[in-house]
Nucleic acid binder design. Structure first.
Lengths: 344, 344
DNA sequence: ATTAGCACTCTCATGTCGAGAGTGCTAATC
DNA sequence: GATTAGCACTCTCGACATGAGAGTGCTAAT
């Protein structure tokens, strides 16, 4: 589709633009990359690339800037194979140290996710996002009820993956702690090992059938499951808004405002990540390809983490379209694998 | 100190500036506020106020802008007595609806705090902050241990105030659930009702004395208490960075960057809030009075909430120096009282 | 003591100009 | 026939000037 030299020029433009953030001219390319031809030749090639839609000029007689299509081509064909592994020693070292740190944390999932978002954002200067395991891919380990004052019960839900969720419930009947233990025991023996969603539907059915004495608590149990279900839609982990404000891309404020609105809404981002979660490997969404209105103009690099073969959740980096894709892809890939490993 | 008319002019300038965010000129004051004298007179008075340090001009022949001292005087003497109660019906309505909503939430403290920060920021367009109860003012209700997989125990800590805290611990000895219950029972009967800090010091002493079989778990229990202690330093609740970005004061970005750095650090803000927590009633810190470097240039309106007579924590609004103090004070006061009420 | 009038000052938006950077085209070159 | 050198052209950007607008400070009149 593109001859070798055109590719080299395209790669040169993209890389230069990623670093300098200024339109790159023909002279600059010849100087920095020894392609063995003169500025004029480069100009011709660049004009061709522009016709093909890979580059564009902010105005006549400025340098060229990659279009989304240009980045896409770069990501697909140019930074390919092996090159994503070639990162500076410093970054590799960072990731490595982080990996070791993560192993130390063990199975406190929430704590781990906080660490992961922080690591993602501080290493990359982009926004780090982690979507925790979706309830349908999470299996119930056990539930416990703790009596708290006369009319309150605290429910603590554990999943096999290490998610802990607690919720205070108000109850009408005054249960003793023994009552609660019995009920918890029943639920645990009956349902341990199933997915949260399964249990929810079973319990809903049961509730319709029996109107036993502890109906009330089952109702409450269902409330918890609903909490746990809504978990993924409420809490996902974000960090790096501050880091990203340091980038020259966002000196303008309006972008930041858009992004932070998107994050505040959460809904849109979650939908996006969910879409990406079905695919294998590292996903890259560039600029306008992004279905979320507020994030057109940003790029997203995402990857799922798994328990064995089952995909659990997604981690992602959000940054400007001119983000350092090779670095971002490397990081997201490395860290998602690292999370997967902790599940073993 | 200031004659009546000077005060009126000062108040007029402050209020106008708060609304318009533009330097206010003498003509404008005569038009908007019927003080019964001409622009020239106002000019004289304004010149006096400037000499006294209450007003300043961005440049010769712009209108006047209040200084920090001007705001301070306004807050102390001009917006006084009763006036803070006179808010638009809409705001009052909002606060009222919120109060009712809070009562519905009941004793899930964390959930409540999230609600409170959201309410604070969305009603005011400033940044809402809540500092949760400090561990020294929090009393232990009960702890429970839940066995999770072979070598993990989840500890759940409840305080009388409704704070729930959980933590996954790794243990060497394989406890049965009965072991754990016995240990929890012992701790609960022994220590319930004391403050977290007390217990911590007692346990540390005990640990030195006994080297019993369940030593390990006491060590872990102490770990949890340490967690609970660090609680206030880690998690405080903030929201509204997005709302604040909409304000014209922050079209400039550098301020936002400062603020978000301050929030990210947390430390500085916590220190400030802690200082404010010792005082009675609503505290107002204006601009340069602020000890935190990053927040000079912002103002903070804060108030403690209490359980009975004991101060528990602080809620605050952070906004530009030209914030609507009367509204902010009203809100912070109303909401802190409202929180206090839920503890009864 | 207050006010009207007027000169003065400062900002801000607008417009002009030249330097600099980069292109596109054409003609010469390998 | 592909590549290159040369040159005119275009566009941005900062510097500088200009004029309108807003607001002041001062003085003289009320």
């Amino acid at each position: 589709m593109l001859d070798e030299r055109s590719r080299q020029v395209l790669r040169a433009v993209v890389q230069s633009y990623i670093n300098k953030l200024e339109p790159v001219g023909s002279r600059f390319v010849t100087k920095k990359y020894a392609l063995g031809c003169s500025p004029a030749t480069i100009r011709n090639i660049m004009a061709d690339l522009e016709d093909l839609g890979f580059l564009s000029q902010p105005h006549t007689s400025a340098g060229r800037v990659p279009t989304d299509k240009g980045y896409r081509f770069y990501v697909n064909f140019l930074g390919d194979a092996g090159e994503y592994g070639e990162q500076d020693a410093e970054l590799k070292d960072c990731v490595c140290r982080f990996t070791r740190r993560l192993e130390g944390i063990g199975s406190d999932l929430n704590g781990m996710f906080v660490e992961v978002t922080n690591a993602l954002s501080s290493m990359s200067n982009y926004i780090g996002v982690v979507m925790p395991p979706r309830p349908e891919s999470t299996t119930f380990n056990r539930i416990d009820f703790i009596r708290y004052k006369a009319d309150k019960v605290v429910a603590v839900l554990l999943t096999d993956e290490g998610v802990i969720k607690n919720k205070m419930l108000s109850v009408d009947v005054a249960f003793t702690q023994e009552d609660l233990n019995r009920i918890a025991g029943y639920l645990n023996s009956e349902y341990s090992g199933r997915t949260i969603d399964e249990i929810k539907s079973i319990l809903v059915k049961k509730m319709r059938q029996e109107k036993a004495a502890w109906d009330k608590l089952i109702t409450n149990a269902i409330k918890i499951y609903e909490e746990a279900t809504s978990f993924a839609e409420e809490d996902f982990f974000v960090s790096g808004l501050y880091d990203v404000m340091g980038l020259p891309d966002f000196s303008d404020m309006s972008r930041i405002r858009e992004i932070s609105r998107a994050i505040k809404d959460k809904h849109a981002i979650l939908k996006l990540l969910e879409e990406l979660s079905s695919a294998e490997g590292v996903q890259v969404v560039i600029g306008n390809e992004n279905p979320v209105e507020e994030l057109k103009g940003q790029s997203v690099v995402a990857s799922t983490y798994k328990e064995g073969e089952r995909p659990m959740g997604v981690i992602a980096l959000i940054g400007p379209t001119r983000m350092d894709y090779s670095k971002a892809i490397y990081m997201v890939d490395a860290i998602s694998k690292c999370i997967s490993r902790t599940f073993e």
